[in-house]
Design a protein around this nucleic acid. Structure first.
Length: 565
RNA sequence: UGACUUAUGGUGUAACGGUAGCACUACAGAUUCUGGAUCUGUCUGUCCAGGUUCGAAUCCUGGUAAGUCAACCA
């Protein structure tokens, strides 16, 4: 008796979902689930952030919780509203809605009050040593640090100085507030970490010049979680060593059973790609790419411009999973996710990237026919459209060989091929100039083999895409390849700029496409039949139609050619 | 020569003490009006050494390897 044959196979939980379900079973935090996505507004979101976003928002969605967006804006030197806007746009593009938007800067007063309390309890002190001295005293991972001479100053003294830190009376760098924990801890982060530093030369993007002393990440982040009622604070592996400090701060202030908990997962690495904000910024600033939204960039705006849909991103994130193992994902998986998603939705069109003229010698000179072709064989509801056939056509250079190997199923003298949605034609030769360069190719068509007619079912090995010279319109096509030549640029000892792939962008002009593509909106995506998935670049103007290649189609002929080369 | 974390085919990810499975890749075949798509099949794996157990990828001990940490960044 099989009762559940119609049920989808149960997808196994990742370790975070398993943890959440256990927390739910145990009634932790009253069964409440709350997460947050906490970007610093100092750069554009990339595919690695998408992984975190899908987890933060996904967990909340799945377990009837809420997820807030919180900007961790505690360092006015680096942050800007420009980034706030793009971050919100990208999250929404991915299809998520936050419950609330918060800013760590919303809590500056609360954080300040708590810090004063900590000082009064003798758990924090103002240190007047220089940054260098403090760094030196910190010790090394294998060597304990030494205590600051200011460590045991009276609490009232620290409090008075702390207040001065925020009035402008104290120069940046002259004083910091430190938590008094353990200078001998094996965890460097517990060696009296800095809680506040003075920044006076940059206005904060939200609070302006109001504050002179700003809280550091470790203090502000955990407490913000606590203020908001976050239950699951999910972050990447490099924050693992921060967790004891996160917990320490929570312990100092916690006044009920509620407690947020930090859990770390592996960040996303992809082959032939860099995922560091610093390196991306460098690529942009040094003009090595055209901008944050260069289609070769792993930023969300770059992927969007490249032709990736939110569905393709989700599809990819679903495949890679969440663990604590710091590996590197094959970029082929990202490409596969794009093909898989686009295959179902992209309208098939004819586009000839590298055209050569094909003359159907036995076709009437001035005749033109309208033929029907399907928009998407994967989706019958996509319907059909008309295309124009005439005596003179364009086909790809790659589809002709005067002397071809046996496995070449395309245009070569004496061989029959099908012109997609049109006729079966037989190649009869070509015309050459004085130097022997081929100028045009000749063939004869069989009038009884028009698509839909009985003779059209004749077996031919190859089917070619084509365009009529009567109505094809010119276009520019940008072909993208991986940005880097080495699998793992971050692990390479050479300067990452020396590892760039010089052929990551090939601009091809003189292409031809179907005329109706002129009127499509930016980012609209298509499959260029037998070639790949392409979308309309926002640089497109009425005079200049530009396409980006999102990803090529799998090409077993290219593989065959390579194998025999 | 410290602390924390991790280790399953080429890559990523399952198996929660009981048949090592899935996806991508690669390779073969079927099919096809896209050399696309689809379908079928094949190759390849539990880091090492001990221990506990009827039984270990899973638990324990010890190695080995990798990642992270010494910003007044987040």
């Amino acid at each position: 008796m099989e009762t559940n044959t119609t049920e989808a196979p149960k997808k196994s939980l990742n370790f975070i979902e398993a943890m959440v379900e256990q927390d739910l079973r145990e009634g932790r935090n009253d069964g409440r689930i709350q997460t947050r996505f906490p970007p610093e507004p100092n750069g554009y979101l990339h595919i690695g952030h998408a992984k975190a976003i899908c987890l933060d928002f996904g967990i909340a969605e799945k377990y009837n919780g809420i997820c807030n967006l919180r900007f961790d804006d505690t360092n006015p030197v680096k942050e800007d509203v420009e980034y706030v806007d793009s971050i919100m746009e990208d999250i929404q593009w991915l299809g998520y809605r936050w419950e609330n938007v918060y800013y760590a800067s919303d809590y500056f007063q609360q954080l300040w009050d708590l810090a004063e309390k900590l000082i009064l309890q003798g758990k924090a002190y103002v240190d007047e040593q220089s940054a260098e001295t403090i760094a030196k005293q910190k010790g090394t991972p294998t060597q304990a640090g030494t205590e600051s001479p200011y460590r045991n100053r009276p609490a009232e003294e620290s409090l008075a100085l702390f207040r001065k830190m925020n009035t402008g009376e104290v120069a940046p760098g002259a004083m910091v507030l430190r938590a008094k924990i353990d200078m001998a801890s094996s965890n460097m982060h517990m060696r009296d970490p800095i809680m506040y530093r003075i920044i006076t030369d940059h206005p904060h993007h939200r609070t302006g010049w109001t504050w002179k002393a700003y809280p550091m990440y470790d203090y502000a982040h955990g407490q913000s979680d606590y203020f908001e009622g976050v239950t699951h604070s999910l972050c990447t592996l490099e924050f693992e060593v921060h967790r004891p400090l996160y917990d320490w701060f929570i312990d100092q202030f916690k006044d009920s059973d509620y407690r947020p908990r930090q859990t770390e997962f592996n960040r996303l690495n992809i082959t032939y790609t860099v995922m560091s904000k610093r390196k991306m910024l460098q690529l942009v600033e040094e003009g090595l790419v055209s901008g944050w939204d260069d289609p070769r960039m792993p930023t969300l705006c770059g992927l969007r411009r490249r032709g990736y849909s939110p569905e393709a991103i989700h599809n990819f994130i679903d495949k890679i999973g969440y663990t604590k193992y710091d590996g590197i994902i094959d970029v082929g998986l990202l490409e596969h996710a794009a093909r898989e998603t686009l295959n179902k939705t992209a309208t098939r069109v004819n586009a000839v990237l590298n055209p050569v003229k094909l003359v159907v010698t036995n076709y009437p000179d001035n005749q033109v026919e309208k033929l029907l072709t399907e928009n998407n064989p994967e989706d019958e509801s996509a319907g059909t459209r008309e295309i124009l056939f005439s005596k003179e056509l364009y086909i790809e250079w790659d589809d002709f060989m005067e002397e071809a190997p046996k496995k070449f199923f395309r245009m070569t003298p004496g061989q029959e091929v099908r012109l997609k949605s049109a006729y079966i034609v037989k190649c009869t030769g070509c015309k050459k100039d004085a130097e022997g360069n081929i100028e045009e190719i000749y063939c004869e068509y069989d009038a009884n083999t028009k698509s839909g007619m009985p003779d059209a079912n004749r077996k031919v090995k190859g089917t070619l895409h084509w365009l009529s010279t009567q109505n094809a319109i010119p276009a520019e096509v940008r072909l993208y390849d991986r940005l880097f030549n080495v699998e793992n640029p971050s692990a390479d000892e050479r300067d990452f700029r020396d590892l760039l792939n010089p052929d990551s962008l090939k601009t091809v002009s003189g292409c031809f496409v179907e005329p109706w593509l002129k009127n499509q909106p930016a980012l609209a995506h298509f499959q260029f039949q037998r070639t790949g998935y392409f979308n309309i670049d926002p640089d497109t103007t009425p005079e200049r139609l530009i396409f980006n290649r999102t990803v090529s189609l799998k090409d077993s002929w290219a593989k065959e050619k390579k194998a025999n080369a």
